[in-house]
Amino acid sequence: MIRSTLRRVTPQLIILALILALNMVMFPGFFHVEVHNGRLFGNLIDVLNRGAPVALLSVGMTLVIATRGIDLSVGAVMAISGAVAASVITGGASWIVAVLAALGAGALCGLWNGVLVAVLRIQPIVATLVLMVAGRGIAQLLTEGAILTFNDPGLVRLGGGTILSLPTPIWIWIGVAALVGLVVRRSALGLLIEATGINERSARLAGINARVLLIAVYLVAGLCAALAGVVVAADIRGADANNAGLWMELDAILAVVIGGTSLLGGRFSITASLLGALIIQSVNSAILMSGMAVEFNLVIKAVIIITILVIQSPRVRHWIYLLRASSGPGPMPRQPASRTPKIEEGRP
């Protein structure tokens, strides 16, 4: 299982390595990690830490996309959950209650999306657009338009604290990803989700409860978004309804796409999506470290992302394969043969 996962994510690992190498070329101290007041400190840690929100979102988004859906509302759900956590904590409750309330809000949002998609059969992109637009408004109502700040040490630790010297958000996203990944792959959930995403009609006729399954994946996406929202709010010790998670749903979708899960649903890999999230964060980090004029930020990001996606496109992969096959006696030829097996027609 580990070996097959490794084979599946090889392209993402290579891309990540290349971008980290690029970072290092631009900024030689990139891999330097040291301990500062009992806290691991360095660019690599930043990539892992800052990648947390998108990594969390990409876990839920991967499952949603595997069912041939999409969830545009996760950024807004982040704003809602952050606002809920901040209001509850400033109301005097403990940080655990605040986090549970935020998760509850996220679950509710996910349930809403799931019902629109699975029961009312509204196209996912339209169904989740509703909450994408309305959700930020709801968050603004909760915070009354201002940044609602808090200083509860428990809640703050979720964003800015450390556990065993490692920033808490890193533990959170790795933990959530491991939990979801384990549940999905150790149970039959992954198989049923993939079947539903590839051919929902066949899946239903095979006895899969596609409706419940769809609601469940949107629920998970909502929960992941809620957790991301809490992390982001805890990080700045305040709920910024206007900006928390703004456009982050697009980064999450991008992470899944870079991870190679098709937007048409089906086969998915949470690990690959997480690598996608880290790739995006490394690109962001490279831009920040480059010291280039800000006007180039988006252009550089676009160029890198486009390059990644082009290299991953089936057509280009095929060209690369042809190029390597023709340019000498590489150890290549066996692999593609096994990838597209020829099935012999059984004709007695």
């Binding site: 150790r186 039959a188 049923l192 079947a195 590839i198 051919n199 409860n209």
Partner: peptide, 29 residues
């Protein structure tokens, strides 16, 4: 094609799909 097979899944997964669906997701074969 449209009501039977789940094209991208393996033959193995297609064979056990209904049995697994009846067992429930939490009881993997």
């Amino acid at each position: 094609k449209t009501e039977g097979i789940v094209g991208d899944l393996s033959v193995r997964e297609n064979i056990i799909l209904s049995l697994q669906a009846r067992q429930g997701w939490y009881r993997p074969l």
